[in-house]
Amino acid sequence: MSEWSAIVFGRTYEVDYRFLAIPKDFTLEDEEWTKKYILAVMYDPEKLKNAPCWSIFKNKKYCVIGLTYRISDLENEQPEFDIRYDNQGRYIYVFAGYVVNLSQKLNYLPYLLNNYNEFLKLTKKIYKNSYQDSSPRKVELEYNIKINEPKLIKVQEYISLWNFPVSIDIQTPLTYPDSEDNRQKIWIATSEYILLSQYSVTPQSKDIALCIGAETDKYILTKSPFTIATVRQIVSYQNKQHTDAQGYKSDYNRNPVNDANRKHESQPTTSKWSFQISGFNLKGIIGVIRILLIIQLPILWILKLFAFLLFNLEFPPTIDWTSAIIFIVAIISLTVI
């Protein structure tokens, strides 16, 4: 079973936002990497009212699972130790999460979606010693937290049936409607992506960052570092299509979770990854064919020359004409396709 450390970022009674707990091996660079995802969720804290956001993000060194929320939303009753407000009466928002060092192989990622109590408990544990401190110090923690293995059924099938893009580079954020069904499937597919990344150099080793419960797609698409997100409101690109790095269009209103149900339809899907298989795409294949058609003419001339010099053979004129016509058609296609 993998051992995890804790990470907590938030405001205390007197002091503004900062890291209150980090893994012991975190460098300043690691803190900055983590902070960009935390602040991306906290960019407008009021939007988190009664809407906690889950996140999973990983690079080559670490994987982080956390919850960003307003403490008063989970701590409804008057607690014995109140950490809901600062000294100005403002709500306190916090990111609480767990970190695993990827130098150890993972057999699973814990399924913590909707386990709010786990993160509230972690928050209370860290805030107990830092909440009223006028100059709270970062607590550096060991990797000694064991999280029970989740009971997930047929995790691997989500990759094949849902068509999650585990075999391509994610060039542009993918956004989906924030339904409970989408949340579960995207969480599981992201977890599987991260597990697969341990056994492949490319492309699964790419960084990936999931945000569940973001307010709008516009923010995710334009300003945040997240690569995948479920969004509560589709406010931008409602009637537009996004063109990804390969030139294929995908409709942001479409719910890819239902892709498996469309596999028997006669019309092909227009998902951004529907033409991309193991790094290849339709446009690339057409380009290769076009190049072959162009270079066949000079290759034919070379073969004719060798045949004449070595064997005193001459090709029929029809071969020259056919090759020339193919060459001309390929050249013309450069301006058409």
Rank of each mutant, 00 (worst) to 15 (best):
N182K: 03
I170L: 08
Y158F: 08
S134F: 13
S130Q: 15
P136R: 08
S135F: 14
Q156T: 10
I159R: 05
L174A: 04
S191R: 01
T190M: 09
I188Q: 02
Q156A: 10
E140Q: 15
Y158D: 02
I145R: 10
Q184K: 06
I159L: 12
N148W: 00
E142I: 05
N163C: 07
R137Y: 14
E180V: 08
I153W: 03
D169K: 14
I170A: 05
Q156S: 08
T190Q: 05
N148F: 01
I168Y: 08
D178F: 05
Q132F: 15
T172I: 10
P165M: 08
T175L: 04
D181V: 10
Q171Y: 14
Y176P: 00
I188E: 00
N163S: 05
F164Y: 08
D178E: 05
N144P: 11
Q184P: 02
T175G: 01
I159G: 03
N148L: 06
R183K: 09
E180M: 11
E180P: 02
P165H: 09
I186F: 00
S130K: 15
V166H: 02
L161E: 09
S134W: 11
I145W: 01
L152A: 00
L174V: 07
Y158E: 04
S134R: 14
P173I: 07
Q156C: 05
Q184C: 12
Y131S: 10
E142K: 11
D133K: 10
S135I: 06
S130C: 14
N182H: 05
T172W: 06
I168S: 08
K146R: 05
I159K: 06
L161I: 04
E140G: 13
D133I: 07
Y131V: 13
D133G: 08
I188A: 09
T190W: 01
V139K: 15
D133Q: 07
P173M: 04
N163K: 09
K128R: 14
I186E: 00
E157F: 07
I153M: 01
Y131Q: 09
S191Y: 01
S160D: 10
Y158R: 07
A189F: 03
Q132D: 14
I168A: 09
A189N: 02
S179D: 06
D133V: 05
Q132T: 15
N144F: 03
E180S: 10
I186L: 04
L141K: 11
N144R: 07
I147V: 09
N129T: 14
I188P: 01
K151V: 07
S191Q: 02
Y131W: 08
P136H: 10
S179K: 08
I147K: 05
E192K: 05
I186V: 13
Q132M: 14
P173V: 11
A189C: 10
S134K: 13
P177R: 04
A189E: 02
V139Q: 15
N163T: 00
P136C: 12
S167Y: 11
T175V: 13
T175R: 04
E192N: 03
E149Y: 01
S130D: 13
I170S: 03
D178M: 03
A189K: 00
E142Q: 13
S134H: 12
K128I: 06
K128E: 13
D133N: 10
W162H: 04
Y158T: 05
I168F: 06
N144D: 13
V166Q: 02
E180D: 11
E142G: 12
Y176V: 12
Q171T: 15
Q132S: 14
T190A: 11
N144E: 09
S134L: 13
K146V: 12
K154Q: 04
I153Q: 02
I188L: 09
T175P: 01
